[in-house]
Design a binder for these strands. Structure first.
Lengths: 134, 134
DNA sequence: TGAATAATAGTAATTATTACTAATTTTATA
DNA sequence: TATAAAATTAGTAATAATTACTATTATTCA
């Protein structure tokens, strides 16, 4: 793989952001400094970087992908309501992963462990909505 | 929600198949008996059925969704290589769900617990590939 | 330095999905 | 049972995210 300044900046942006940007967001953030950067280049490089393990790809339940430049073992919680992606340290999950592996023969990728549910904010909102009617 | 024969058949097909079909597959399976069924109708109904909890939507990492008509508590293992979706009983994971919930305040949807990794078949293939060079 | 190769920009194409609208079906009621 | 209101459908057009294509540009290493 040859060096390219575009790829270097794309990697930097993903590493510096902690908000799990989409390809589009990475593109928007780089446009000011690289006015003729192409969106296709962003997609191509995000995919290659995640293939070689420099970053992680996070598929969203509602479609689309986000990217994560932090490689420390952690998993992702995605809120089905607001779409927020939260990081959680993987530590507590190690025994579980071992168990799933033993039970199923499936080699789990910790970086791809994604849990869907409702974040505490949206749980509260949902509760408040119901209590209006009581 | 009003009754419709299309929705009834769509639900049946998803319940009868254990292969987690996509909207496209459901459509293809119903076409012979309902020649002017519309793909949009299939999408609309699969989404509504999953909203009301009659079926489950399974987002794939590579994009696209699959659907599951089996509501017993289980989670899904998705192979990053071949895309195969395997069911696993949720029993083994209960402690995990409790722990994640306690740690993060995140209300996990068991039906949306999706683990990505390599299935045993693809692990074997990958291993065989490497051993050619040794 | 310069040939070989990889990467890019810009555009077109693809894929899964949703939106739109007129016609049809369902349902509750007279 | 007829019928009016509302939901649903078929068929088509539109959208969104992503990939493919190609001529040009940048990198590499001999």
């Amino acid at each position: 793989m040859k060096y390219s300044s575009q790829r270097e900046r794309i990697l930097s942006v993903v590493r510096e952001c902690s908000d799990h940007p989409t390809a589009d967001v990475v593109y928007a953030r780089l446009r000011p400094e690289m006015p003729n950067l192409s969106l296709g280049t962003v997609y191509r490089n995000l995919n290659r970087l995640s293939e070689i393990g420099e970053i992680r790809k996070i598929p969203l339940p509602e479609g689309g992908n986000r990217f994560d430049g932090h490689l420390n073992p952690h998993y992702h919680l995605i809120c089905s309501q607001c779409g927020e992606v939260t990081d959680c340290p993987a530590g507590a999950l190690e025994p579980l992963l071992t168990k799933v592996q033993a039970d199923t023969g499936f080699a789990l990728e910790v970086g791809q462990l994604i849990l869907y549910g409702l974040c505490s904010g949206c749980q509260k909102k949902a509760k408040d909505k119901y209590s209006q009617h009581t």
